[in-house]
Design a protein around this nucleic acid. Structure first.
Lengths: 127, 127, 127, 127
DNA sequence: GTGGTCTAGACCACT
DNA sequence: GTGGTCTAGACCACG
């Protein structure tokens, strides 16, 4: 995992995003132990407090749980993928709302995107 | 135009967003004069610096041009709507990318959204 | 407001609790400006970071909103009192659950408490 | 007995809670010998230190007594159930105090809870 | 060893 | 001035 110090977003937020992605992709097993706060801080050459804050946020959002004295662990719940799907759909709906305000043909826009997806799937499917 | 202090986003950013929207919707005519920095600052009971910053950003993004000693004016170019359409499409592509990473069926997702749009159009079209 | 350094609970949590109480009681008006992070830190002779953390938590829980460069403000929503009522009821239900496990007569317990409340109201109502 | 690592509460505290509950329910006889520290640590696949700490706490609270060289034993006194009843009543009083501060009608609240209890008893009583 | 809290002091973005 | 992020280093509770 890499932190982009040029990125405007705070470091702790980048850590959160990265781990959310990894957990949701299934790259990390449920109940798998996370690197310790100090360990990850060293790996990213950042401050333990920053990592701590990221872990706190991941715990609050339900991606992790921590046990004092033992470590932090992945909590992959069922239904999490569905929740994310809804979030993504909501964000796309927002974009479509903006488009509609400008009298852009949203159905045509979606059709173009659907075509892209279909093409990508056919090419990627054989790769 | 109203500023939502509870929004969390900085005020200057809200001003930028609001004017971008107004200009793109055509609510403001090309070459129309914008309120002066001090005027708008008073209207929004905010700081002139904040408005100044918003105008700078709008100018940088090509929505305004300013003439020293005269004021700021709307620059409505042709092709602007198309540029926005591309921006929106890119942001949706990003969301779809995230979905694909989680092995969510993006084509099904787009189909659902397209259906929503169609339904909304049919209902709204008669309203 | 006072911090109890003997209390086992962390300082930031005590700040959160105190302000939640004040806001819910109506002792702080909606949209009223909170003391600045640095100011409150000085008042409580604690570290600005600790206050910052408390404010962050209060914002996350919907009691506050912060505007960079301006300050933090009380956000008293409607329906908040009802939400709290539910929380309290849930915590009492938990206690009753524990009592039931020990075969304690919960209805008698509640009756005693109701009588206490009635007595207190009659005495307090005339004071 | 099971430890819930996702619970958040420290392990030793969960052990204390669990044994308090078992003893009060009468599931453990007075003077019954507790599993040895090492034994229970193995059973819960946790650290003997953790179990030791839980036993210390249970002893401090008067639920156990230990005999050097022999082991730990359950101390089920008379009057213990009454003590617990008082503890529960005090905790509910605290909750009612919080409710009163917000001008919530505590008598109505208690009435609702009493009704719930009555309903649960009638349904459960026949099950 | 682990996570959780706190201090002291810095820099940044925003008003 | 304000809030937000980060560093460096400390101490505590827990296992």
């Amino acid at each position: 995992m890499l932190i982009d110090y040029q990125d405007g977003r705070p470091i702790y937020e980048q850590i959160v995003e990265n781990y959310k992605r990894l957990i949701l992709k299934g790259a990390l097993e449920p109940a798998e132990q996370m690197p310790s706060v100090r360990q990850l801080a060293t790996m990213l050459s950042t401050n333990p407090n920053t990592v701590q804050r990221a872990y706190m946020e991941l715990e609050r959002q339900g991606y992790l749980y921590s046990v004092k004295g033992k470590g932090s662990f992945v909590r992959r719940e069922e239904g999490q993928r569905e929740r994310i799907r809804e979030e993504i759909r909501d964000r796309i709906r927002e974009e479509l709302g903006r488009a509609r305000e400008l009298r852009i043909d949203t159905e045509a826009l979606l059709a173009e995107l659907a075509e892209e997806e279909r093409d990508a799937r056919q090419k990627g499917g054989k790769g």
